[in-house]
Design a protein around this nucleic acid. Structure first.
Length: 113
DNA sequence: AAGTTGACTTAAA
DNA sequence: ATTTAAGCCAACT
């Protein structure tokens, strides 16, 4: 049974992508946030994967600080080694296990309307 | 159209 | 530390 939200319309998908990029662009330097937070803020709480897909495949993601987006456990994106160095260059501290120190750098996105 | 995949998340082993 | 499992959903095969 599909009691979940259902598929996005083309407009919704477009808006979602815009929102994602918009939110990511607001991540302060030296901070990080998670896919889940971004998705929730876009109004699609269960679309963390879609956020990842957007940042990965959408041209233009390179124009926003998408390197400041990590997963919920502070892991950096697979196959993107540079991300870690970019974060280090901003002063983001990594723990011994190779994860970002979330307690220190996690930025909880909030938008004041 | 049905199955697989993935820049996800949480929990568990 | 790593892996599995299940839940999740759009895109891809």
């Amino acid at each position: 049974m599909k009691d979940y939200v259902g598929n996005m319309s083309a407009e919704q998908a477009r808006a979602f992508k815009d929102d994602v990029l918009n939110i990511v662009s607001q991540i302060p330097r030296g901070r990080v946030t998670t896919y889940g937070h971004i998705a929730a803020l876009c109004g699609w709480p269960d679309h963390a994967r879609m956020v990842g897909r957007t940042l990965h495949y959408t041209p233009g993601a390179e124009k926003v600080p998408c390197h400041r987006v990590v997963n919920a456990v502070g892991r950096t994106a697979p196959g993107w080694g540079a991300q870690r160095e970019m974060l280090l260059a901003e002063g983001v501290n990594f723990k011994a296990n190779g994860r970002v120190d979330m307690a220190q750098h996690l930025w909880e996105p909030k938008i004041d309307l």
